[in-house]
Nucleic acid binder design. Structure first.
Length: 469
RNA sequence: GGCGGCAUAGCCAAGUGGUAAGGCAGAGGACUGCAAAUCCUUUAUCCCCAGUUCGAAUCUGGGUGCCGCCUCCA
């Protein structure tokens, strides 16, 4: 069973066959670091990181590259507003990016290149395009000559004529064709600039991704991903630049995530429904946000609402309960082989999990499989009065393994608050009270702990406690 | 105008020809001193119309509604 991915280039699902066996070269368009990233940006970060993890889980070595756009109009404008340099702005929001992305469980990429640190590669690529007759210079600006690249429109699935007729008025008289786009922009007063054969200036937006992705991944990438809105023109232009320069296929698979809406509307500052990931993290647990992002197929639009997130939070709690019940049972395992049915069942579910993930990364279906496993484990825990350690460990392994990809179960949490001893003492006191049927005292202790966010559950194997999410 | 997507229970969401996964919420029951957790039971004429087929949520045609890209944007 191998992976099948929906390729936007062909608009069909295709078997995934990497350029180099056992290896995946994966480039994902990263943030422009002029502000905190918003909850819509968080979707590709989470989703494509998860896809990367799944490739690794499946045995591939993955080189995962996600860039930082640290020079463009937005960067310059914001830096001017703040009265700081563009590089200071970039440093600040790269740090903020990592703070939020780390909190969301997004693993760091293999490489996180910045445009400003790759001027040599960018200038090389532009020079090559000029030499090959695919670009032209006008007064210090360099444009890509769209008409020189017959395949222009492969991703958009539209002809140059169709694209042109739809294009809104473009007033740039310097361009030969309205769809020609800037590879290099000549310096304007007060802007950061770099020397080049065409004078001082800075790169256009699209060129950095082509230059950096090929530097780290070679001239043919396996996968190039980004939000669906990047399909045109950004990715179309990347293909044109890269392929015109190298004559080779730039990326074998183009994948795009669907939009995230807020209350059924596109997020925008003017509508007032703009939500940063930072703000979302203050309101909802990170794993609930991850669960939400993975609960629908990555290509479908999803609607971020308070209710959806509360639902996701409850679902994650069910997962956590299963995990902590398992830990509790492990403290005092029995010897009966209660897992005679559980173990093969989990093996089957593991396979179904893989099948779902292999089928165009169907995380929603995969989650369904996990919950079937959760139910089976819960039933085992309930029905087997003496759950045996091997079965418990097998169940734990199942959860651990799927969670190494999805990152939604509270496996590593609940460590050291320093008050564990005190809690244990209170539990002992409560146990005594209960034995003496002094329920007012036992309930009092439970309430006191609850007020501190510590929840108690009385089980046949003793009282277990946990902290609230 | 061009390109494309979506419409499945109160809510979220899988499912591309053989009579509907999973989650959340609700109802009833079991367990419990009471809770909590857990388990059992329960809740869908798959947007409409027509067609193809022995058989369609799934294919075809036509509607209706919503959304995205074509302009910086994940």
């Amino acid at each position: 069973m191998s992976m099948v991915l929906y390729n936007d280039l062909t608009r069909t699902k295709e078997p995934f066959v990497p350029v180099r066996e056992g290896h995946v070269g994966f480039y994902s368009c990263g943030p422009t670091v002029y502000d905190f990233f918003h909850i819509g940006n968080a979707r590709p970060f989470i989703v494509f990181d998860t896809l990367r993890r799944y490739f690794e889980y499946s045995g591939y070595e993955v080189t995962y590259v996600q860039n930082f756009t640290d020079i463009d109009d937005k960067m310059i404008n914001r830096a001017n507003q703040e009265g700081i340099s563009v590089s200071e702005l970039a440093d600040r929001f790269i740090a903020e990016y990592y703070r939020d992305a780390d909190a969301l469980g997004v693993r760091r990429p293999t490489h996180a290149p910045k445009a400003t640190e790759h001027m040599a590669e960018i200038i090389d690529l532009v020079s090559t395009l000029i030499e090959k007759g695919h670009a032209y210079e006008v007064n210090g600006d360099v444009f890509f000559d769209v008409a020189s690249f017959p395949a222009y429109g492969v991703l958009a699935k539209q002809s140059l004529e169709d694209l042109q007729s739809a294009a809104r008025t473009d007033v740039n008289e310097q361009k030969r064709h309205p769809l020609d786009f800037a590879l290099w922009k000549s310096k304007k007063e007060g802007e950061p600039s770099w020397p080049s054969p065409w004078g001082e200036g800075r790169p256009g937006w699209h060129i950095e991704c082509s230059a950096m992705s090929m530097k780290y991944l070679g001239s043919t990438l396996d996968i190039h991903s980004g939000g669906t809105d990047l399909t045109f023109p950004h990715h179309e232009n990347e293909i044109a630049q890269a392929e015109a320069a190298t004559g080779k296929t730039f990326a074998k698979y183009w994948i795009h995530n669907g939009f995230l809406l807020i209350d059924r509307e596109k997020m925008s500052k003017s509508l007032g429904n703009f939500l940063t990931a930072r703000a979302a993290l203050e309101k909802f647990p990170p794993r609930a946000i991850r669960f939400f992002m993975l609960s629908a197929h990555y290509r479908s639009p999803i609607n971020f609402t308070e209710e959806s997130l509360i639902q996701a939070q409850s679902a994650v709690e069910r997962l956590d309960n299963c995990w902590s019940d398992l830990q509790h049972a492990k403290k005092n395992p029995g010897s009966k082989e209660g897992g005679a049915e559980l173990v093969p069942l989990l093996d089957g579910l593991k396979n179904r999990f893989k099948e779902a993930m292999d089928d165009d990364f169907n995380t929603a279906a995969a989650l369904g499989v996990i919950f079937e496993g959760v139910k089976a484990i819960n039933t085992f825990l309930k029905e087997s009065s003496e759950p045996d350690l091997p079965s418990l460990e097998r169940a734990e392994q199942f959860l651990r393994s799927v969670d190494s990809i999805l990152g939604i179960i509270g496996i590593e949490e609940g460590e050291a608050h320093g008050d564990e001893g005190e809690i244990e003492n209170l539990l002992k006191e409560r146990e005594t009270a209960r034995r003496e049927r002094n329920f007012s005292r036992s309930d009092e202790i439970r309430d006191t702990l609850a007020a501190r966010g510590i929840l108690l559950e009385d089980t046949p194997q003793g009282t277990k406690w946990k902290r609230r999410g």
